[in-house]
Design a protein around this nucleic acid. Structure first.
Lengths: 393, 393
DNA sequence: GTGGTTCTTTTCCACTGTCAATGAAAAAAG
DNA sequence: CTTTTTTCATTGACAGTGGAAAAGAACCAC
């Protein structure tokens, strides 16, 4: 087993190489001919792109297994050798830091959690860097170099400069996270909004593979949405997009802290559900889990609250679908724990509000544990490692 | 003066040439150096791209005027010579066909209207082709070749195949409009959704110039929306996007023909306003103009209807802005005739519903006569004439 | 004038991806 | 059992593209 080279070369320097690598990464083992068809490159170009990638070990040929067409010469399968590069992904929440060490295929090798004592940068940054050090040490055991670090933070994040512009949840303003982490660790660092990071992971490795237009809706403490339009993750003109938590779906709905009435988040996010369950039942429900238990137990008033939440989510999804016409909407987040309570309401509201062709949109759920968010951060690091040439539409 | 060549060469065959041409077209006279900076091409590449375009006459140098930097050599301005190619744009409505003959700069040279007797393809297509013939004859007077034909139709349009999948307004299904028009006229034909076509025109020549993310909201008989995300017009996975007319903004609102309640179109489109004004005032108002007159006259009940419409539009815009975070929203359409009646309500509702950074979005109006829609169709033709390499973000 | 600055062009040149031809490996056909 | 057909993969020649560097052009300031 050869040791990792001191300076990892970036796998893909040319557009074609980047495109080929991305395609193989997302669509599993592929024959060169298949890659050529998918990328619309010539077979010759694929051969030439694959060779250097195989020489550095990022791509390998599956010698034992072959793809046999009905007739004609059998094809050799090419796949990414995940073990040849490692990445670290971090997700910062208000309570803890979740960190994962992944390989080049974005498979999680190690996962760590660390509780936070404070939310201010002075409290979080040292923990964050300690976490990275811990995983770097862990990585030594694999004998493979860590090639990138991705950090996911909720809020308004400038991913180009790697600056957290404003995170309401953490109460951070203009924290140059990428610079801090890069100088402390020496790694290439990407910083992105957490939902966008998760969206990238889904686009490349999850339920968004092969789709040019889809949305990822996260339900939990807040309600968020990541968007992929024309094969590209949407960031908006000012770095913020997918704020469906504050879509107002009822002009006479409850007042939201944002000042508007009837926001989805004010009806269907965990705190709102808790508040409403308490108000409806009069019972001293303290946590989302307790509210859930009450509703599962059959309390009709509590169930009604969940039904309203489902209706709100379904209507919000309907709005996104009417505006963008995506091929699929993936529903995820901790709120999915209560999915059985409002699945029907979501679907009903969605079907009612989706207009015309938009109703062809595929609605699916995908329970993603918190580690997946950190994996999303790693995915952004992998993305910048590979290069920008993603397959378009 | 040299006559137009028999076979117009496509101006831009290489990516760089296409990019340079598009940049000069959108951003008016520019120096080569400025083009290089904007496109991030090398100055050498710009020179090489410009030369052949000047040889065929699509680009010219403004010899009389020069751009003088504070110090250093004065720069020569390059601009598009609109007169060297003509395009035809058609917009098909339920009542009439609007046709324009434009030059390469998409300036309207001739405009024509033709009333329609029926809406079915058998009635519309002959009129449409006659219209094209008329403009082709007209074009002969300019001594310049017509290089493309763009057709804009409302509804679900597959612009790649040039097929009208389903137009509710015309009650067309799967009409292969591009093929029909191409074989009849011998011109390269583009067919697109009307709002998207208008959006292209705004992106290249209107209020969207230089913006990577903006929305165009049209208010009138229906309520539509064209979207540009990351510099590209959004089409959605199934060819339909921007259906904000059926965003449901009030679960207890009036029933819409789509089956849902509280759709924007069921509150703020012309027919809805007419219906509501009649219902509120009890007066036999027959047309949108009459309703407008009544409200302008000071009828408080009628004004209230317009205020509600403005609120609905503002909320819909707020939804789009929260989802996509555009830099600007352009409001247009015949409905703008009543703008003074609901301008304030639109802005209030928008400001209330736009969350966080999204509120930085610039809200503006732009009265665009019906010819502009036909001009949009011409813009799609120009776009396909130039080639696909548009400046991205 | 001379030097500095900016615009523009020219002359290489590295590089990319396509083309067309070739070889390889299997199934189908005779 | 050979030949043909089909598909996959590779090779080498090649045409185009766009970049780097240098030179030229045109102007200002001194």
């Amino acid at each position: 087993m050869c040791p990792a080279p001191l300076h990892e070369t970036v796998p893909a320097t040319t557009p074609a190489a980047s495109l080929v690598f991305t395609t193989v990464l997302s669509h599993g083992p592929l024959t060169r001919a298949e890659v050529a068809r998918r990328t619309r490159l010539s077979p010759a170009a694929v051969t030439k792109a694959v060779r250097p990638l195989m020489e550095v070990g990022y791509l390998v040929e599956d010698l034992d297994e072959q793809a046999r067409p009905a007739i004609g010469r059998p094809a050799n399968l090419v796949r990414v050798d995940g073990g040849r590069a490692l990445f670290i992904g971090l997700k910062v929440t208000g309570d803890e830091i979740i960190a994962v060490l992944t390989d080049l295929c974005c498979r999680i090798r190690v996962a760590r959690h660390m509780a936070l004592t404070g939310r201010e940068p002075a409290a979080v940054l040292p923990s964050l860097l300690a976490m990275v050090q811990e995983l770097l040490t862990e990585a030594e055991g694999f004998g493979v170099r860590v090639c990138g670090l991705g950090i996911a933070v909720s809020g308004d994040v400038d991913r180009v400069d790697g600056v957290v512009r404003y995170s309401p949840f953490l109460d951070w303003r203009d924290v140059p996270l990428a610079d801090v982490a890069a100088t402390a660790t020496g790694l290439p660092v990407t910083v992105d909004n957490d939902v966008r990071a998760l969206t990238v992971a889904e686009q490349w490795f999850g339920a968004g593979v092969g789709l040019s237009d889809f949305a990822l809706v996260t339900v939990g403490a807040g309600i968020g949405c990541g968007l992929v339009v024309g094969g590209r993750v949407v960031s908006g003109a000012h770095g913020v997009a997918g704020e469906i938590g504050h879509l107002s779906i009822d002009p006479r709905g409850p007042l939201c802290h944002c000042g508007n009435q009837g926001c989805v988040e004010g009806i269907a996010a965990d705190p709102a559900i808790l508040r409403e369950v308490r108000a409806a039942t009069g019972k001293p429900v303290a946590t989302a889990a307790e509210a859930l238990e009450l509703a599962r137990g059959g309390d009709p008033l509590a169930r009604e609250v969940y039904a309203r939440a489902g209706d709100a989510i379904g209507r919000a999804i309907g709005s996104v679908v009417n505006v963008l016409g995506p091929e699929r909407v993936i529903i995820s987040g901790e709120g999915l724990a209560a999915y059985d309570l409002f699945a029907e309401d979501i679907r009903t509201a969605f079907t009612r509000s989706a207009f015309g062709t938009a109703a062809q949109c595929d609605l699916m759920t995908r329970p993603l544990p918190f580690e997946e968010w950190a994996r999303g951060a790693a995915a952004t690091a992998i993305q910048s490692f590979i290069g920008p040439h993603t397959p378009q539409d």
